[in-house]
């Protein structure tokens, strides 16, 4: 989504623009690619995700600028800040892979 007033981009959506305070947004789509900013591998998961561990979670800056938090499917040795990633699934949660 894009703030009608100042054009700031958000993905996932937000209620109030953090740049200008605007509350009206245009629904826009963004591309499926971005870059890992920081990441971690969760070895001790919460009860509800017990069977998934270990898994990687990263803050990803999308090509258009907004940042989001998502899962990344990759071998541990490939996880690195600056790596390009693309969205592969948006069902249970956003899942990316390294490209």
């Amino acid at each position: 989504m894009k703030c009608e007033n100042c054009g700031a981009r958000y993905e996932p959506p937000i209620n109030t623009c953090l740049d200008c305070g605007g509350i009206d947004f245009d629904q826009t789509t963004i591309s499926d690619t971005g870059e890992i900013e920081v990441w971690t591998t969760i070895y001790v998961p919460p009860l509800s995700h017990g069977e998934d561990a270990p898994y990687h979670i990263a803050v990803i800056r999308m090509d258009e600028g907004p940042k989001l938090t998502a899962r990344v499917k990759a071998d541990s040795e490939d996880m690195e800040a600056g790596k390009k990633v693309e969205l592969v699934s948006d069902e249970k949660f956003k899942l990316f892979r390294i490209i």
Partner: peptide, 11 residues
């Protein structure tokens, strides 16, 4: 935005 991913506080 985080709980559904399996995010934890240590994470």
């Amino acid at each position: 935005h985080e709980g559904g991913l399996g995010m934890t506080f240590p994470g």
